[in-house]
Simulated scan of single mutants.
Amino acid sequence: MSDILTQIPPVALPEVIPSNLPQQKFYIGEWVRWFQVPNGDFGCIIGVIYTHQASCMATGLHYLILLDEHSPSREICTCDFAFEEDIEPLDQSSLEQLRGNYV
């Protein structure tokens, strides 16, 4: 687990934290994939934070995703943050199909 922690992308606290946070669309343990990009990564949500994402200056809910061992980027990173607008849920059949595409 400590190896995973060293690979978590950087985040920063937002200047103002709202009194009411947005409702989550996805939950810990749910399998998702990035659908906005060709050959998108996929994995399991292992955390949800409200933060200011350092690399693109966007404030809001960010989902920490542990990439599946068959996900295209897994060789270079173990985890990645995703915005709600960039991911979609995976059912078991879709997950198995994605894993089969990258074997």
Rank of each mutant, 00 (worst) to 15 (best):
E85M: 08
P72W: 02
V32Q: 05
V16H: 10
F42Q: 05
L5Y: 12
I46D: 04
Q97M: 13
G100E: 05
P89K: 08
Q36S: 15
I28V: 15
S55Y: 12
L67V: 05
Q24I: 06
L95V: 10
N39I: 08
L95M: 12
V48C: 11
I4S: 08
T78K: 11
I87A: 06
V48M: 08
R99F: 03
V103Y: 13
M1L: 09
F42P: 06
A54C: 12
M1V: 09
D3I: 14
I17G: 04
I65R: 05
I17S: 05
P9C: 04
L64W: 02
F26R: 07
H70M: 09
D91C: 09
A58L: 15
G100A: 03
D86W: 12
D80Q: 14
I28C: 13
Q97C: 11
G29E: 00
P10T: 00
L90R: 01
A58G: 14
E85P: 00
I65F: 00
V103P: 10
I76W: 11
E15N: 08
P18V: 03
V48S: 08
S19K: 14
Q92I: 11
F26A: 04
I49S: 07
V37I: 10
C44R: 15
Y27I: 05
F81R: 01
L13T: 13
V48P: 06
V103F: 11
S55H: 13
F83D: 14
F83T: 11
E30P: 07
Q53D: 12
E75S: 13
I17D: 00
I8W: 02
E88L: 05
T6R: 15
L67C: 05
H70P: 00
Q53I: 14
P72F: 02
E85Y: 08
S2N: 13
V37E: 08
Y63V: 01
H62S: 10
H70K: 12
Y27C: 08
V32D: 04
F26T: 05
V11Y: 10
I4L: 15
A82H: 08
F42D: 07
W34E: 07
Q23K: 11
G29S: 02
S94N: 04
Y102D: 04
L98M: 09
T51V: 04
Q23A: 11
L66F: 13
Q7W: 04
P22L: 07
I28W: 09
T59C: 01
V37R: 09
Q36W: 14
R33E: 13
M57H: 15
N20F: 11
D80Y: 14
L13W: 10
A58S: 14
P18G: 03
I45S: 07
K25E: 15
H52A: 07
D86L: 12
I4D: 12
S94P: 00
R74K: 08
I4N: 10
H62Q: 15
P14S: 02
F26D: 02
D86P: 06
P10C: 00
F83G: 15
S71Q: 03
T51F: 04
R33A: 11
C56T: 13
T78A: 12
L90H: 04
P38M: 03
L66W: 09
I28A: 10
E88N: 00
Y50A: 01
I46L: 01
